[in-house]
Structures are given as C-alpha cells and as structure tokens.
Simulated assay, not measured.
Amino acid sequence: MISKTDLPDTIPVFPLPGALLLPRSRLPLHLFEPRYLAMLDDVLKTSNRLIGMVQPHEGPGGSRLHRIGCAGKVTAFSETDDGRYMITLAGASRFRIMEEVEGFTPYRRCNVVWDGFENDLGPVETDPDFDRQGFMEALGRYLTDAGLSTDWESLGEADDELLINSLSMLCPFDPEDKQALLEAPSLTTRRETLMTLIEFALRGGSGEEVMQ
C-alpha cells in the first residue's frame, strides 16, 4: 500500500498512447526500448518503484504530455530470453505535471504534485446509482459490434470499481477518450463517461443525440 509520504516530487514518465492506468488497477507492460529498460533499472533502485503513465499528444514543438497522469508501482517483472521485460504496474495515484525535468536520463522525468487526488489512496470507490443491468446490456451490444469477446462471468462478479475501471482501461477508445476517463473526478463520473463513449460507438460515432 502506497501512502502520501511515499509519493515523490519527481517521477519518471512513460508516454504511451492509449495505455490507461487507474488507481487500484493493474496494467501489464512490455518494455523493450533501451531508454525504458534504463528507466526500469533506475526505478527498481528506488523505495517507491513508481512509474508515471501519461498520454502524449502532438503539438507545436513535437510530442507533449497531458498534464494529468497516473503513477503505478512496479509489483512484478520478468526478463525474456532476448532481454525484454514484462512488468506489472499497480495503480497508486493520479498526479499533475508541473514541469518536465531536463537531465541526462534517456527517459523523461517530471516534477509533479499529488494534491487533489487524495481519494486515490483511499478505499475502493462505489457507485450507488449504477444501473448494472442496463450498462451490461449496452456493453454487450458494443462488444458484439466491435467484434470483441469477454469473460462475462468475471465481469458479473466484479465490484463496481473493478468493473468500470477495467473496462475503461481495456476498451479500445481513442487516447483523448482515455484521458477523459482518467480525469473523471469520481467513479460515478467515470461510469457516466464510459457509458457515453459506448453509446457514441453504438451510434457509429455520429454526432446525433443519444436516445433516452
């Protein structure tokens, strides 16, 4: 368990389009670029073992970073025969980037603040107004249209947070949509955003009003 005192002022960041990490969730990653292998080597020497996942976006001057990301703790790693690594990040807390740090590391680092995301370090969130049956019906149509399959038994047994966060991470939404899911201030807001994205996809991405 990560506490607020474990959160550093500077963290390495891994800009990966479409890869979403949320608090209390787990994200498997495959590292093979030399700069990220160097990052992992340095991270494993720290007491917190935190890596910041953040969405990049193209802008003037090249690849920029969204201001809000989520830090995860390296909880498992294994090396392949050809020198690559499979790691697992456990989502700890979201952060806000203040500035990028200039330095000699081959990977990017940022000065960050954790204020405003205190609930990320707390207990599992609930969504008291969650219409699970209606949500699952829409999800089924979305997965069928997208040609995707899932383990319905596991989804049915998952608590609200695990269900909503797992689908937010796994569904193939655009990076900007993933960012909206990340920045949702509560589990209820994230579920509402997720449902909007599913309904939008079911309409074929049209701009028509959602039928209630």
Score class of each variant (00 low, 15 high):
residue 96 R to A: 13
residue 133 Q to I: 15
residue 100 E to R: 08
residue 147 G to K: 11
residue 120 D to P: 00
residue 43 V to N: 00
residue 170 L to I: 15
residue 122 G to I: 06
residue 15 P to V: 07
residue 42 D to R: 03
residue 32 F to C: 06
residue 42 D to C: 05
residue 105 T to R: 14
residue 71 A to P: 06
residue 139 L to K: 05
residue 64 R to K: 15
residue 166 S to L: 11
residue 34 P to Q: 13
residue 108 R to F: 12
residue 158 A to T: 09
residue 47 S to T: 15
residue 126 T to W: 04
residue 124 V to R: 15
residue 171 C to I: 15
residue 90 A to P: 01
residue 114 W to D: 02
residue 118 E to I: 07
residue 52 G to H: 01
residue 168 S to I: 00
residue 21 L to Y: 02
residue 7 L to Y: 10
residue 145 D to S: 10
residue 83 G to K: 11
residue 143 L to Q: 11
residue 35 R to V: 13
residue 93 S to Y: 12
residue 191 R to P: 01
residue 53 M to T: 08
residue 57 H to Q: 13
residue 180 A to G: 12
residue 146 A to T: 08
residue 193 T to M: 15
residue 24 R to Y: 08
residue 28 P to I: 12
residue 127 D to T: 07
residue 202 L to W: 02
residue 112 V to T: 06
residue 54 V to M: 06
residue 138 A to K: 14
residue 3 S to H: 13
residue 1 M to A: 10
residue 69 G to N: 03
residue 134 G to A: 12
residue 31 L to N: 00
residue 205 G to E: 08
residue 92 A to M: 11
residue 79 E to Y: 05
residue 147 G to I: 09
residue 126 T to K: 09
residue 123 P to L: 03
residue 78 S to V: 14
residue 24 R to H: 15
residue 141 R to T: 08
residue 193 T to F: 03
residue 61 G to W: 10
residue 134 G to Y: 11
residue 203 R to G: 14
residue 181 L to W: 09
residue 203 R to A: 11
residue 100 E to N: 05
residue 88 T to I: 15
residue 101 V to M: 14
residue 14 F to Y: 10
residue 129 D to K: 09
residue 131 D to M: 04
residue 94 R to Y: 12
residue 67 R to Q: 13
residue 18 G to V: 00
residue 122 G to N: 12
residue 131 D to Q: 04
residue 33 E to Y: 09
residue 146 A to W: 05
residue 88 T to H: 09
residue 105 T to G: 01
residue 209 E to F: 07
residue 178 K to V: 02
